[in-house]
Amino acid sequence: MERIPILKMGSFLLVTVQVDMHDQLAMNLQSDLTDKIVSAKARGVLIDISALDIVDSFIGRMLGNIASMSRILDAETVVVGMQPAVAITLVELGLALTGVRTALNIEKGMDLLRASIG
């Protein structure tokens, strides 16, 4: 089955979403990530969505779920690189992604994770 690769960098996991995800692929990513957080003893998750040209309510919900689940597993999630047009559209759609932390790029996302984990 199609899968989005998850990279491990120290105590962080990095996911770069580069394909237009159909719903099942997004669901797979969600369960793969939670598994990997546990197996890799990860403290932080970075999800880079700079290549995504839309985020609809389904993907938005998935991002929210990943953030809450990882928090329960004692890992912080930061979503990085959302494009301006995507952000404007999400706001209009009515999705605030409350509970999801964001950063402009991977580097700033890392800083944010390091600072919050201490």
Partner: peptide, 30 residues
């Protein structure tokens, strides 16, 4: 659910062809 992806891609192509701005393209595709 794969059909949804195809619809997104075709709508994007059509919106770009009709000269919609990037933000408006993103809105209609979403």
């Amino acid at each position: 659910s794969e059909d949804v992806v195809i619809v997104r891609q075709r709508v994007r192509a059509l919106a770009a062809q009709e000269g919609l701005k990037l933000v408006d393209q993103t809105k209609i595709v979403t």
